[in-house]
Structure formats: C-alpha cells, structure tokens
Simulated assay, not measured.
Amino acid sequence: MTVNVLFAATADRWDQYAAPLRAEIAAAGVEAHLATDIPADEVDYIVYAPNSDVQDFTPFSRAKAVLNLWAGVEGIVGNPTLHLPLCRMVDPALTQGMVEWVTGHVLRLHLGMDSHIGAAPGTWEPVAPPLAFDTRVTVLGLGVLGAACASALAGLGFDVAGWSRSPKVIDGLTCLHGDDGLREALARADYCVLLLPSTAATENTLNAATLAAMPRGARILNPGRGQLIDDDALLQALDAGQIAHATLDVFRVEPLPMDHPYWTHPSVTVTPHVASETRAAYASKTVAENIRRGETGMPFLHVVDRSAGY
C-alpha cells in the first residue's frame, strides 16, 4: 500500500529534500507518494517546517504524525489545531554541527585567539592561556544537543556541569537540576553555553539577576534561542565587565537588525544562525525512519511533550 507524504515547507526546502527524502523512504522499505500538493484528507504523514503555509491541521483527518524538519518546535507546538503526534528533528549531522560550533568558540575564547588574530605586526606577548583542566563550563540544557556539547567539552578536559529542569544522569558530567541547581550551575560558569528550548519557562533565563550570579568576567555562548537572554541586561553586564564576552548565534529578530548594539559592541561576536543546520541528506533518514515506524506499528522517535513545550 502506498502512503501519502505531504511535504509542507518552503519551495527551497523542497528542492533540497525531494530526492534524498524519496531515496531514504524507499530504503526504509516504504512505498510512498511524496509531494507538495496532496489533498488534506488523503495525507498519511506531514513533513513540516513551521514557516510552511500549512497552519490549520484540522483537515488532515487520516494523518498519523507531523514530522518536523527543525530541531525547535516553538513555532508549532502551541497550534490549537494540531491533533497529531509531533516529532522534532534529531539527526547526527545536526548534533555534530552544534558540537563543532560550541567547542570551536569555547576554544577560541579560552585560547585568546582573537587577540592574536587582531594583533598589530610585531606584537609579541607570550602569555600562555589557561588549561581546560582549570576552566569551568556550564551547559544550560541537557537535551540531545546540550548533552553532546557538554560531553565533547568534558572530553577536551574542561570541568563541565550541565543543568536541566528535571534530573538527568550523563556519564562524565556533573548534572544539576531545579532552581537550586541553576544557582549552582551559574555560580561556577566561567563559560555558559545556552542550549535550552524556547518556552515560557526559559524566557530570559539569563537576566540581570542570573548574570550577576555568574563569576565576574564570565563568557556566554548562545547557539540555542534568542529568547533565552534579556538583551538589555546582557549589554549592561558587558559594559560593567561582569560578563567579559558574549558569542551569539541566535536572536529575537533575525536577521539581527543593523542598528542593534550587538553589531558594534567590542565584547560581542555575532554569528548568523549557523551553529547548526538541518541538512537534507541526514535529516531525511530521521524522517524516513519515523514513517517506517508509523507503518509497522512502532512508536515514533523524538515525540514532543506538549505540556513541556519541547
């Protein structure tokens, strides 16, 4: 029996995904019709991006799941018409990209690379950088991406702690949770990496009070969500020297407006939302596996907890 898979995303995404997605679904042993124009009442699965034209899920009466192409689900999880299981994107390439960005920028700051790259010719200041053994990193958020980044940094020798809302156990890491755990996590954060989801509970996780709780001269890296930081509070903390540097990849408004003070602040590095990207060749495997599972009666992978928002 042929299953109907609706691709509901932007046209450029269709160009990227059509061939690899068809190939991976076939490799998973599923006979499927993949298209962008299947009648709603004939759709079995929706491969979805939240910026799609599809915003009303009511007509999809026989669909079995919505398979999100993005790791973040804040753009869909609250949709009142969504009556289907929602699966977020988790794939090895997405994780690898995040690990590379986080470890690269932590090492850049840790080793003082900017001062060498920008130094005037003839500058010779042979000051050895600190060792990772003596440097504490806190990762806020211990989902798939956060756990992978925390483990990679620990593998490089950093003293790593991770924080999550609920208790977790991850080999090689100090895992903290809850309000008390957050205070402890921030108090020991020479570097703080933000990889929390965007929910009402995580909005402005870093604010005037929590920034003040960090060691003076701490450094912040945010490849998670722009909403995790109170921008005004961060700028004030940077100006006061409480925070020495912020490397930011995500923002409340994207592209970051040209008049935003982050662009010109001497202690801010802006990267254009490139910390990790969903790549069609890899993401198609995740989508195909969930379709295979749906067709064989197995539980879907990476199902979103609607009550938690991620």
Rank of each mutant, 00 (worst) to 15 (best):
S307L: 13
D37S: 05
A208M: 02
A23I: 08
A308K: 05
R219P: 07
L86C: 11
D171E: 15
H273N: 02
A147G: 11
D171C: 10
L173Y: 13
A71E: 05
D15E: 14
T286D: 10
L211H: 10
V5A: 09
P85F: 08
F158R: 07
D239P: 12
A275M: 02
A11E: 15
E184N: 14
Q242E: 09
L182I: 11
T278H: 00
D239H: 07
G226D: 03
D180P: 05
A128M: 08
R88A: 03
Y48M: 06
A275S: 12
Y310L: 09
P272M: 02
E42L: 14
T296C: 06
E277I: 15
E100S: 14
M298F: 10
P50H: 12
G226N: 05
E289N: 15
R279N: 04
T2F: 10
E125P: 04
L153M: 05
H245T: 07
V268M: 07
D259L: 02
P92I: 01
L94Q: 01
N222V: 02
A244Y: 06
S198P: 11
D114E: 15
G217W: 06
A209Y: 01
R293G: 10
L194Q: 07
D12W: 11
A119K: 08
E125S: 10
D44M: 11
A148N: 04
C175Q: 09
G309I: 14
Q227L: 06
E254K: 07
E31N: 14
P223I: 02
G162R: 02
F57D: 11
R136M: 00
T81V: 04
T2M: 15
N222S: 05
G294R: 13
H116S: 11
G141Y: 03
D56H: 09
D134G: 09
D37T: 03
T36P: 09
R225L: 12
H265Y: 04
I291M: 10
T202Y: 01
H273A: 12
A8C: 11
R183W: 09
I229Y: 06
Y191L: 00
L221F: 00
D12R: 10
L156T: 01
S61F: 08
R219G: 00
H245D: 04
D37V: 11
G72W: 03
A212S: 13
